[in-house]
Design a protein around this nucleic acid. Sequence first.
DNA 1: TCTATAGTTAGCTACATGGCTAACCAATCG
DNA 2: CGATTGGTTAGCCATGTAGCTAACTATAGA
Lengths: 129, 129
Amino acid sequence: MANQSPRLDQIFAALADPTRRAIVMRLCAGEASVGELADPFDMALPSFMKHIHVLETSGLVQSEKAGRVRTCRLSPDALLGAEDWFQQQRAIWEARLDRFEAYVMKLKKEKERAAAKRPSRTTKRKGAE
Amino acid sequence: MANQSPRLDQIFAALADPTRRAIVMRLCAGEASVGELADPFDMALPSFMKHIHVLETSGLVQSEKAGRVRTCRLSPDALLGAEDWFQQQRAIWEARLDRFEAYVMKLKKEKERAAAKRPSRTTKRKGAE
DNA sequence: TCTATAGTTAGCTACATGGCTAACCAATCG
DNA sequence: CGATTGGTTAGCCATGTAGCTAACTATAGA
């Protein structure tokens, strides 16, 4: 099953912060330096750097330093990994809904057959879950 | 833009914990009581209840009490909301890739035209980003 | 070389999180 | 009624997180 994945932990934890989500959104539009990224935020640089670091250890962002400027870019693989998790859950959920629907249909069929046998009785029932 | 959404904060924060992800996965397969949910975990009930509460305030899970048993179910809307966020980011990312690819194609065309003009020069260049 | 720029390191505070125990309701069941 | 079960409340503790300032390093530009 392997869903104890510390990678997912880190990715979701990283995305739980609006500042960090904003950084990711910004980087979706293309790479940028730390300074450029930090500019819109009313926050001291060291605080901001911590966010960058969290994003980096989660694998969502990569960066490299050239001269005195560090350029950050998105690592789309990590984003896809998290998206996959949702899709898996949705698949399971939808499979369950299908099964449930099938069950309801079966009930309905049975009810109809019963109604055909003794058509006088009103086919009313509550609590179909 | 509205991506300061505290709802997303809470959803991602909720999913950052492996215990809570496991609960969500379990609930994808159908509703369950607190006791049933807690059973697989080696954790005191009050600690476990905190996780349930986090999931509930994030909107991922709903629950109601009948008699002395509380039954939990998944609220698929919240999950979809988070999934949407990824899809939006991916859309932006892919649009950028398209633009970038178009840009590379343009460069290539230009290079070819240049090469046609003076075919002697070797068309070698590094660092196209 | 001097200065300004772009990050970085260190170290602090306040608060949130995840876990525990102990004690406490409130429905069931015998 | 009395005991059991299923959950809840209260309160404690250790650790993690988000922010800050101050001081430092290292490159780029004048």
